[in-house]
């Protein structure tokens, strides 16, 4: 499919170009979506090497802001099927290699 990383330059380019957050799927309202996305970006940048801490930070912040109970998955590769409350799901890519899934289900 994609010839990954033939040269270093390409990889750097890829990293530079693909550093923006890319929302794959969401049903959140506009305001909430923006807020959640920003939160995810901050968390992933803060804990660039520790996905677990990033996920923890996102979950806690979301619980505070939008009420419990939020669930966060961050990883480079995973599959999932979740049940979420309507209008409370965000699935996004970030930094070229991370997938973040945030949803609420209490």
């Amino acid at each position: 499919m994609a010839d990954t990383g033939d040269s270093k330059k390409e990889e750097a380019d890829y990293k530079r170009l693909h550093s923006f957050p890319l929302i794959r799927h969401t049903d959140m309202p506009e305001e909430m979506r923006v807020e959640t996305m920003e939160l995810c970006v901050t968390a992933c940048e803060k804990f660039a090497s520790n996905n677990e801490s990033a996920a923890k930070m996102i979950k806690e912040a979301m619980d505070k802001k939008f009420g419990s109970s939020w669930h966060v998955v961050i990883g480079e590769g995973f599959g999932f099927e979740v049940t979420h409350e309507v209008k409370n799901l965000l699935y996004m890519f970030f930094g070229g290699s991370l997938a973040v899934c945030v949803w609420k289900c209490s």
């Binding site: 499919m1 994609a2 990954t4 890829y14 170009l17 693909h18 890319l22 794959r24 799927h25 049903d27 990883g75 480079e76 590769g77 995973f78 599959g79 999932f80 099927e81 979740v82 049940t83 979420h84 409350e85 309507v86 799901l89 699935y91 890519f93 070229g96 290699s97 991370l98 997938a99 899934c101 949803w103 289900c105």
Partner: peptide
């Protein structure tokens, strides 16, 4: 109860890459 929905996806490197390329 608040309405719920199911969502499933698979995240892996090539999917992420494709998504980014497409977006770009």
């Amino acid at each position: 109860p608040p309405p719920r929905a199911n969502f499933s996806a698979t995240a892996n490197q090539w999917e992420i890459y494709d998504a980014y390329v497409e977006e770009l």
